[in-house]
């Protein structure tokens, strides 16, 4: 049974299609990155998974439970860090945690949770109305962890977190996955998903335009690692000889400096060997991972370039 399964899940707001016939499966135990620019429909899809929002058509199941009618069974197994929430400003951080412990009938100790998400026990006594965004985010992450949920749904979890907070969040995600939890991680920033996710799904304008592992996406788009090599003299090779090698493409030369794209970063050793066999000494080399931001932008452009299917009467 999949952790999350949607069939032609659709939500319309008047003329606007926020989520357009999405078919998505997230297996148990995986960390799934859910990507897309702001307004792509990510939060609307999450809202439907948790039955905040009823779908216009199609259906979704979480651990086999239909979102319409079995929402309580779903929420018993899901911890949520929602997007655009607000804390109860007249209640303390600790009271928030106690409320979740009671509502889930869990036996978590609020102090352990505070410690895990790095909140000061003294701050926990203060009213949540005084919390900074980063503190609020830590508190709600802590609330999501209570009761050892089988699925964590994190909607833009790094909002307001400083680099330490982001690292802490990643560590927590890894701990939760080791425990056996599934993580559904939504973000508009690829770099954050890259560090923790096994697979990603990319949403744009309500449609799910890609579901793949990060490696698969790099292959599809044909970018990966960029290799810069500086040689002491011209080797006994042509640029086409290098391009003929596996995993090497787009070789450019600028004096003693060569630049090429590698679809597999381990190909760099082969390239360096080949250059040295050709009689040149490699003075210096440098690799750079193509930014996923570029990748992302490219995918979305590609999607936008596709002509809309024409409707005939």
């Amino acid at each position: 049974m999949a952790a999350i399964e949607t069939d032609a899940l659709t939500r319309r707001y008047g003329e606007v299609v926020a989520v357009d016939s999405v078919d998505l499966t997230v297996e148990q135990g995986e960390v799934f990155g859910f990507l897309g620019p702001n307004g792509a429909g990510k939060s609307t899809l999450i809202n439907m998974l948790l039955d905040y929002t009823p779908p216009t058509s199609g259906e979704a199941r979480v651990f086999g439970h239909r979102t319409r009618g079995e929402a309580v069974a779903i929420r018993e197994r899901v911890g949520v860090l929602p997007d655009a929430y607000k804390l109860y400003e007249r209640l303390s951080g600790r009271r928030h945690l106690e409320f979740v412990v009671q509502a889930r009938q869990a036996d978590d100790d609020p102090d352990d949770i505070l410690d895990r998400v790095g909140l000061d026990p003294e701050d926990a006594e203060r009213n949540a109305g005084d919390y900074s965004k980063g503190m609020a985010q830590r508190l709600v992450l802590g609330m999501a962890l209570i009761g050892e949920p089988d699925l964590l749904i994190l909607d833009e979890p790094s909002t307001g977190l400083d680099p330490n907070g982001i690292r802490l969040m990643r560590d927590i995600i890894r701990e939760e996955v080791d425990r056996g939890a599934t993580v559904f991680f939504s973000s508009h920033i690829l770099g954050q998903v890259e560090a923790v996710c096994d697979r990603v799904g990319i949403m744009n304008e309500g449609r799910l335009i890609e579901v793949a592992t990060l490696d698969e996406i790099r292959d599809t788009i044909g970018v990966g690692t960029t290799l810069h090599v500086t040689v002491d003299q011209q080797p006994d090779l042509t640029l086409s000889d290098l391009e003929a090698m596996d995993d090497v493409s787009n070789v450019r030369a600028d004096g003693p400096e060569l630049t090429m794209n590698l679809s597999d970063s381990t190909a760099k050793a082969k390239v360096i060997n080949r250059l040295e066999e050709g009689g040149a000494t490699v003075v210096d080399f440098e690799t750079a991972e193509s930014s996923l931001e570029e990748l992302f932008a490219e995918l979305i452009d590609e999607d936008a370039d596709e002509p809309e299917p024409e409707v005939s009467a």
Binding site: A71, R75, V78, A84, K86, Y88, A103, R104, M143, A144
Partner: peptide, 14 residues
Amino acid sequence: RTGSIKLLLGLPFE
């Protein structure tokens, strides 16, 4: 309106 209901609805409440 504020969004705090999302914290409630994430919990097993009908």
